[in-house]
Each structure stands twice: as structure tokens, then as C-alpha cells.
Amino acid sequence: MDLQAKNMIVTLSNTEIVKDISIKVKDKQFVGLIGPNGCGKSTLLKSIYKVIKPRQGSIYLGDLDVVKSEPKSVSRVMGVVGQFNDLSFDFTVQEMVLMGRTPYKKFMEGDSEEDYKIVRDALEQVSLSGYENRSYLTLSGGEKQRVILARALAQQPSFLVMDEPTNHLDIKYQLQILSIVKGMHVGTLAALHDLELAAEYCDYLYVMKQGKVVSHGTPEEVLTTQLIGEVYDVECEIYTNPITGELGIAYLQVPFHQ
């Protein structure tokens, strides 16, 4: 299922955060959204997953008009791994993941054996089998994030939106989370801050700065010394990692500001 967002303008308390952005995610494509802090990545994603209503613009997921549809119908096709997942009350891991089935539930409908199977499969996919009855709040950051991912998987989405899913995670879990998502072969739009990881996992990148898309293309096309200098204000060299063969970035220094 492909996502098409056109001419998006999003304002937060009268400040224009996202300024006329159009992006496209083709079916089964892993698209990364990169850019410095405060460039509007999260705001753009939030308007895509219906937390903020865009002031202007259209979002289509396949034939589904995301802006006009009820959250329930959107949540049946779109899974979201957001940034803040702290709770003020504890749940067990199983209960957390089971909530991913909410979009499919009618009034008063209970959880079926099939739901539990989906939950088991989702937990297995994020290698958290056996964690069903652990309490969510006692988990480590990486485990919590994988539970949230499992919840999104339990929604059986055909599209995933992720807002810095690897934030605060050890490298192992960063790689693990991105590999799981990549292995799902569903369209994915993810805001990422690690450029090397973005280069490794994304099929296509959009680069944002100050609410605008300044460049887009494959990682090799986009991630150049010049662009990183312009967007992030950091000097770097781009090279091919001799061991992995992937794109590597060597950051040199933060330029001196007069």
C-alpha cells in the first residue's frame, strides 16, 4: 500500500511547522525522513497518523483518505511506533500488545484465540517470547520499544509509521528493530537520526530542514558532504565502508561560529 501526502501544511499554535511538503512512499518501500532536531519531522508524522490535523494538504494511503477517515479505519491499515511510550499505570506485555487488536474490535467483543495467536507471533517476531506476563514498566528501553513495535505488528498493518524508533537504544536493538521492520516488507515511513543507519536500511530518503523538504532520493544520491554540511551544519566526509561496503560518514568537526 503506498502513501501519498501532498502539499502538507501543519501549524502548531499559529506557527507553521511543516511548510508545503509532499512525500510519497511506494508499496513495500522503506522511506526515511531525516533532518536536524526541530525541522518538523515529528510534526509531519503526527499529521500523517492523525494526531494533528494538517491545515492544508491531503494524505492518501492507497485509496483511503487519511485526513477524512475515522481513526478506527486508519488504524486497521497503519501501525505507529511513536516517540513517547511511558505509562502512568502498568500493564503486562501481553496486555500491551493485545491492545494492537483494538482497531478490529466491535463493541463488547472479547479477545479471541486468534488474537492471542497474533500477539504470540508478534512477540516472537521481536524476540520477546516468554515476556507475556512481565510488567511493561519494568522492562528496559530496548524491550519497551520492541513491545511497542509488537503492538504495531499486532495491528497487522500494511503501512508503518515510526518516529525515531531507535532512540535511546543500544546498537544491537537499533539494528534489530530496523531489521524486523525491513523484514516485514510493508511500506514504512520512519524518522531517523542516525544517518549511517538510514543509509543502510532506507530505500529512499527525504531530507527536511526548517519545515521544508530540501532534498530527496536514494541514500547515495542524497547523503553528500555538501548536503550534510548545509542541513546539519557539520563537516563530514562520505566514504564506502571497506568492511561492510555500505555508505559511511566520517564527521570531522562542528564548524566554528563567528
Binding site: K46, Y49, K50, V51, E70, P71, K72, S73, V74, S75, R76, M78, G79, V80, G82, F84, N85, L87, S88, F89, F91, M99, G100, T102, P103, Q155
Partner: peptide, 12 residues
């Protein structure tokens, strides 16, 4: 209990 943002993404 998940917060309003997560609730919206689960359709509520």
C-alpha cells in the same frame, strides 16, 4: 492509559 496519542493510533 496509553495516552491520547497512542490511543488515536489504535483507532480511538
Amino acid at each position: 492509559l496509553l495516552g491520547s496519542e497512542a490511543a488515536v493510533t489504535l483507532g480511538i
